[in-house]
Nucleic acid binder design. Structure first.
Length: 271
DNA sequence: CCGGACGCCTGTCGGC
DNA sequence: TGCCGACAGGCGTCCG
């Protein structure tokens, strides 16, 4: 479900509830997520204090005193902060109960998400070790994309969705960024000029920044931690708008399957 | 190394 | 109304 802006929105919503709080208990109702919950997870986490809450790509990182809880929401995961006594509902798999009698509750119907325990440097974790740069930092730019495209010929949309190239760009924001940059999603990455890579990097940054400012995109069930939807859905230019007129030129938005994922683009604006 | 396909799961929606 | 297939915001793994 969530891409970078949604995870960042969740992170910001969690900070005031979690930062500096001690975890006093853990309830695991379902161990079978993308990877099984580690047998010693509860032992490691109970009694520890959440010092900082960070995001890397689409991973949420709860930094405890002596290790890190790595959370990934997969396609259908969601997190809420509730009173610990709130009765769990279907697919509410894990509670981290805080000293405040609140709990961080993970729900994930499809169980593509994960909650992992890691000690040591976070970049040493195998899931994070080979990630590309954060798109909203200075070391991400058009030149980085151009270098990553060397010796590759995949569709440009797949290149920017590759987390080893740039972290956190998923299906929605890939389509939206390519629209802003005026690039056809199926264009081979080897045929994108450096000028256009610069435009694309800026487009990715612009789209993600605006999406974060609007609290992410709610298509069906994404909720901010306060229960509010994200409002960027109102700003989508192409995603989910097949056979509707382009808001810029009036041509009909088209959809196309690229790498098993639906892609949306404007044939008038993107080449 | 690269690119493409697959599988992991449940819920929802559209068509018949 | 019910059934069935297609599809969904991700991503590691496997194969050629």
């Amino acid at each position: 479900m969530p891409e970078l802006p949604e995870v960042e929105t969740i992170r910001r919503g969690l900070v005031p509830h979690l930062q500096g709080r001690r975890i006093v208990a853990v309830i695991i109702r379902e161990h079978r997520l993308r990877w099984p919950i580690a047998p010693d997870f509860e032992t490691q986490v109970v009694g520890a204090t959440i010092e900082t809450i960070e995001r890397r790509a689409k991973y949420l990182l709860l930094h405890l005193t002596h290790g890190t809880v790595i959370i990934h929401l997969g396609m259908s995961g969601s997190i809420r902060v509730l009173m610990a006594a709130t009765p769990p509902q279907l697919h509410d798999h894990i509670d981290l109960i805080l000293e405040t009698n609140q709990c961080l509750r993970l729900r994930d119907p499809r169980r593509f998400g994960a909650m992992l325990w890691h000690t040591g440097l976070i970049d040493d974790h195998s899931l994070l070790h080979n990630l590309g740069p954060e798109p909203l930092t200075a070391n991400f730019n058009g030149n980085h994309l151009a270098v990553a495209a060397k010796n590759r010929r995949v569709a440009i949309k797949l290149l920017i969705m590759d987390s080893h190239v740039v972290a956190g760009v998923g299906n929605i924001y890939a389509s939206e960024s390519l629209f802003v940059a005026g690039i056809h999603p199926q264009l081979s990455c080897r045929d994108v000029t450096i000028v256009r890579y610069n435009q694309l990097a800026l487009a990715i940054q612009q789209v993600l920044t605006q999406a974060i400012a609007q609290g992410g995109t709610t298509l069906r069930d994404f909720m901010q931690t306060d229960g509010q939807p994200g409002y960027f859905a109102n700003s989508l230019q192409v995603y989910g708008r097949a056979n509707m007129p382009c808001l810029s030129c009036g041509n009909m938005i088209q959809e196309l399957r690229i790498g098993q994922r639906m892609s949306f683009f404007c044939p008038g604006c993107q080449h």
